[in-house]
Amino acid sequence: MKIVVAIKQVPERDAPVRIDAAGRWIEEADLQWALNESDAYALEEALQLKEQHGGEVIVLSAGPERVGSTIREALAKGADRAIHVDCDDLGQRDALAVARLLSAAIQPDSPDLVLTGLQSDDLGYGQTGVILAELLGLPHASLILHVEKSGSGITVKRELEEGWFQNIELPLPAALTIQSGGAKLRYATLMGIKRAKTKEIRRLTAAELGIAAQASITLDRIALPQKQKTTQILTGTAQETAAALVEKLKFEVRAL
């Protein structure tokens, strides 16, 4: 099976994000970067499929120079080769524009399966993967926890609300967006990093893909969320307060 995994580099979860001087983007200078979490699961799913059924895993990432480190990480974990769409104007492209870049880069390989994470941890559009499927003209399913090969197609396990799951069969080729937590991620190894050095990373620019460097959105202003701390005292009997607490945890905090 030939699988393309589209991955994104995002600021590390812990990173202290600051707004840049112009107020339109974040200060990138001393940020630490990491692989987007659900993309890591997409990659894992692809690697497991390859281990079971053979084939090739190609990682694809769009972004500036720094994205290289995340690409190498993916190669180290076991991807066979990579395509780097070199562009530093991602912030000015919306989900559709990014999906166009990705789909143009994928097309020549005509893979059996295209995987992406469900959404990015930074912008969180949650659309790029789905639009990408549409542009490639592939059947797709989102929120996938697990993929299995069955006959000439695949069976996927899809997460619904409230602990419900749905199993869907799809023909191949197909595109899926992968939900975090479905598999156990592998750790990076020294051997992987050493082997990754010899793997191919193909660099392409938007122009080479025949896509104009045209802003599809303009950011006017970005802001950090206001931190609010409000304390509420629940009153009533123990039972009433417990019920009220559960209510709040469920619907306001969404912790249950």
Partner: peptide, 9 residues
Amino acid sequence: AKLFLTLER
């Protein structure tokens, strides 16, 4: 693996 992934990130 969890420890390694924790410290990778």
